[in-house]
Design a protein around this nucleic acid. Structure first.
Lengths: 216, 216
DNA sequence: CCTCGTCCTTTACGACTGTCAAGAAAACCT
DNA sequence: AGGTTTTCTTGACAGTCGTAAAGGACGAGG
């Protein structure tokens, strides 16, 4: 791999900063590659060698930038979460009616499965593995809380627009919607290729009927 | 391992049947041991050697009774399911009021986490792995359908007793309740030991508030 | 009693795992 | 230009994995 040459820096402090930045960039590149592999193979079957082989790097580089497998995984998960826990915020801020928010949210749920299915598979895999592997618990707990907060932002805005109140607490609301989402993801991932779109349609329909009952 | 001697059989056909039965018994014993290990370690970390070591058998025996790891796993899952997809049927048949069914069902949900937590962890693990491992899909799909049917029996009886109708289709209803159940199991499995009972209390409370909204 | 089929233990094989280190290559700085 | 530091390749290590086979133990049937 050719490393882009750092700009000639006269200032040694700036040079050090550039070095650190280049180092972090590599970590991000590794994480991005690793996430693709993790999403496709799952946590268990993603060895460091397999991850490296499906990236522009060798397996030695992985160990150069991450001291453990655990460090790589948790770094990947946090990297992934940074781009995804605000997924519905645009819909929340731009919707001006309850119906618009409801249908936009339902559509977005389906869209993110279609566009980022493997990433969601990975998330559920890791969340489950955290029941067996204590090392994963901290990062899983953190992200799960952020996902719950994200859903709660949707629901409070939805309630606002509808002039009503959320009927349930944040955790319960998240649990219900997450159940439907996971169920759909499973059908999407394991079902025949031709059924994928209809599976997503079913999800939006279910969310559409569920949403009003989440308010009182 | 000492094998219990087969009763002296004069009839060669009866002898053959006894042999087959002994063979099946061994498979069940193996499966029972394996399930404990699978539930404690998860699918990924349960090697055949680990399974054998936590059983009264050697790893050679495992391979003698099951030709593959896959065959062992799927046999285990089916063996487990046989004892669990009727878990709520007694409550369904004995309850005479909607309230009784509702609270009995909610309590049973919590109880089965308390009593059989690792088994449920294993189930969610396998269901998730089926997204990455096509070999698991058939058995997962089969059991998921049976679980859904089990939930639907509860809901239809509940609707009957309440003199109302189920508000949602079986799949949606199952998805919602399963979401709450999985959420609770995660908290139960990964949270501090001292919080386990309160986590279960929260589940029963949530199910109690949810149940009426599942009817119309 | 002796053989045969079943059941089980033990050992082995090749592949794969995470981790590490030696050293080449490249980039950097003076 | 030359020495230093960072980056990367390669090969090796000690384990573990699933799978298989060779052989012993042992009751069943002749």
């Amino acid at each position: 791999m050719a490393v882009p040459p750092a700009p000639a820096a006269v200032d040694p402090m700036a040079a050090a900063a550039a070095r650190v930045s280049r180092h972090d960039n590599r970590r991000d590149q590794l994480a991005e590659s690793a996430l693709v592999t993790l999403g496709n193979l799952g946590y268990a079957k993603s060895s460091l060698r397999e991850i490296a082989q499906r990236s522009p790097f060798t397996h030695g580089v992985v160990h150069y930038y991450f001291s453990n497998k655990e460090e790589l995984i948790t770094y990947c998960v946090r990297y992934y979460k940074a781009t995804c826990v605000t997924r519905y915020d645009e819909i929340v801020t731009t919707s001006s009616t309850a119906e618009e928010l409801q249908s936009g949210f339902a559509a977005k749920l389906a869209e993110t499965i279609r566009e980022e299915g493997p990433m969601h598979q990975l998330w559920y895999d890791l969340r489950n593995q955290s029941m067996f592997e204590p090392a994963l618990r901290e990062v899983v707990l953190e992200i799960d809380g952020q996902l719950q907060a994200m859903i709660w932002r949707v629901i409070t805005k939805y309630a606002d627009l509808a002039g009503r109140e959320p009927a349930l607490d944040p955790a319960t609301t998240y649990g219900l919607l997450d159940g439907l989402f996971a169920q759909t993801l499973l059908a999407w991932a394991t079902g025949p290729e031709g059924d994928r779109e209809s599976v997503l349609d079913v999800l939006t329909a279910r969310v559409d009927t569920l949403m009003p009952t989440l308010l009182r």
